[in-house]
Nucleic acid binder design. Structure first.
Length: 477
RNA sequence: GGUGGCAUAGCCAAGUUGGUAAGGCGAAGGACUGCAAAUCCUUCAUGCCCCGGUUCGAGUCCGGGUGCCACCUCCA
């Protein structure tokens, strides 16, 4: 089984090969920490999370770097509005970033570099670019000479002539060419600023990623992720800077995730359909949000809507119900009988293979989830068969089912809840006691009382359902 | 104008090197149940935007249309 990844640079799916055996180096464009991140950002953070989890599942050791942009126009503007420093603003929203990504069960990266901590390296890179003739200084600003970099446009398939023809780029008298982009920007009064050979100023946006990616991952690394909209100009410029400096390609695989629309429309503040991830987590359980975000292939646009969230919740619930049934059975005593679990073992192996094949095909989470649904249905069917008996052999097979759901659903996709075994046995014991009483009441035909117990338990957060083997219960969300 | 992408059942959505349409939601009927919940069974695309072409065979390739979206400007 080989993993294939769609590489924006080549516009095709390629077999994934790492630079170093068994190790993957990955860089993700992180947030500008001037506000709570929005639901679209959430996808850009979940996509690399899925990539990382799956690579780790396949046995790779993954080194993941995700940056925080903590200095730019938006940062300065917002800090001024709130009457705090840019540093304070950054700190506040970095904390918020971790709260929200933790809620979404996104694994932490290995390094979270911040732009302002790498100013001297950025200055050095700019100097090198000037020395090599790829950049020039003009009145305290430094620009990248796009024309000088022959391969400019190779990531986004743009031709320099086309860009110039349809140019909507700001006219800037200082630039030799309107396409040239800023590497270093002279500061205005009151703005955060750093010393540089070109006077007081601050870095341009693109330069930080060139510096921080190569600093932590080396001059060549495996994967770079980001949203589609970053393809141009951000990543195109990053390539120009890094390659002009190094003289060779830096990134092997460029991954770009698709956009999120809201009720079919582009999310924007002017349309009033702008949602932070925080807003959404207030409204929906985090697992559902995560499930929704990975229920469609990462490169396709995805539409956020009430109805789609409702569907996602139901779809996820179906998987969880099955896992709960299995867990419940695993707690029961084995019974004598002839029923074998071979069929289940076979089933698990088959669906797991499907799952892996799906993920190997450019992280097709949509298909992968479908294989879990198929597994769930077949397992339910097995449990529901007329002559079902929980023999020791069946129990072993169910144990395997549970392990597989945990391996694929929790470890790889991060959508199912982990089994937090109740440390204290008192609650289960009390519930069992009540259910025994209720069972007696039912035998006596006293359904009124029996239903009352069920209702009261439901109010307390305990869902009860009756099965031929007796009443089952679980703690509700 | 340039570049890239998308168009599959009521809705969401997958479709590997072309081989005879996954999965989810929803709906209907049935089974089970005192009721409920969950679950199981059956049904819901002779067809994948339209028109041509290649092929024994195309959702899948080629050509031409139509519609939608994104990017080209800060943006995940």
């Amino acid at each position: 089984m080989t993993l294939k990844i769609y590489n924006t640079l080549k516009d095709t799916k390629e077999e994934f090969e790492t630079l170093e055996d068994g190790k993957v180096k990955m860089y993700s464009c992180g947030p500008t920490v001037y506000d709570y991140f929005h639901i679209g950002n959430a996808r850009a953070f979940i996509v690399p999370d899925i990539v990382k989890r799956y690579l780790e599942y396949k046995g790779y050791e993954v080194m993941h770097v995700l940056n925080f942009t903590d200095i730019d126009d938006k940062m300065i503007k917002r800090a001024n509005e709130e009457g705090i420093t840019v540093d304070e603003l950054a700190e506040k929203f970095i904390t918020a970033y971790f709260e929200d990504t933790d809620a979404l069960n996104i694994k932490r990266a290995d390094v979270y570099p911040q732009a302002t901590e790498h100013i001297s390296e950025m200055i050095n890179l700019v100097k090198t670019l000037i020395d090599k003739g790829y950049a020039y200084e003009k009145n305290g600003d430094v620009y990248f000479r796009v024309d000088k970099f022959d391969e400019y446009g190779k990531l986004s398939n743009k031709k320099i002539e086309d860009l110039q023809a349809g140019s909507r780029v700001d006219v800037n008298e200082e630039k030799e060419d309107p396409l040239d982009f800023t590497l270093w920007k002279e500061s205005k009064a009151g703005e955060p600023e750093w010393d540089s050979p070109w006077g007081q100023g601050r870095p341009g946006w693109h330069i930080e990623c060139s510096v921080m990616s190569t600093k932590y991952l080396g001059e060549e690394f495996d994967i770079h992720t980001g949203g589609v909209d970053l393809t141009f100009p951000h990543h195109e410029n990053e390539i120009a800077q890094s390659e002009a400096c190094c003289g060779h390609e830096v990134v092997n695989y460029w991954l770009h995730n698709g956009y999120i629309n809201i009720e079919g429309e582009k999310m924007s503040k002017s349309l009033g359909n702008f949602f932070t991830t925080r807003d959404i987590l207030d409204k929906y359980p985090a697992e559902v949000v995560r499930f929704f975000l990975i229920s469609k292939h990462y490169r396709s646009p995805i539409n956020f809507s009430e109805e789609n969230m409702k569907d996602a919740a139901k779809s996820l619930e179906r998987l969880e119900n099955t896992v709960d049934r299995v867990k419940y059975l695993l707690k029961q005593d084995v019974q004598d009988g002839e029923l074998k679990g071979a069929e289940l073992f076979e089933l698990v192996a088959e669906k797991k293979e499907d799952f892996i094949a799906a993920m190997d095909d450019d992280f097709n989470t949509s298909l992968a989830i479908a294989s879990l649904h198929e597994l769930a249905r077949e397992v339910n069917k097995f449990i529901d068969q007329d002559d079902f008996v929980l023999t020791i052999d069946v129990k072993k097979a169910l144990e395997k089912v549970k392990e597989t759901f945990e391996e694929l659903g929790i470890e790889v996709l991060g959508i199912l809840k982990t089994t937090e075994e109740t440390e204290n046995d008192l609650v289960p014991d009390l519930v069992e006691l009540l259910l025994e009483t209720r069972s007696d009441l039912r035998d006596q035909g006293n359904y009124e009382m029996a239903d009352q117990i069920r209702d009261e338990l439901s109010n307390l957060g305990v869902a009860v359902k009756d099965t031929p083997q007796g009443a089952e219960w679980k703690i509700k969300e």
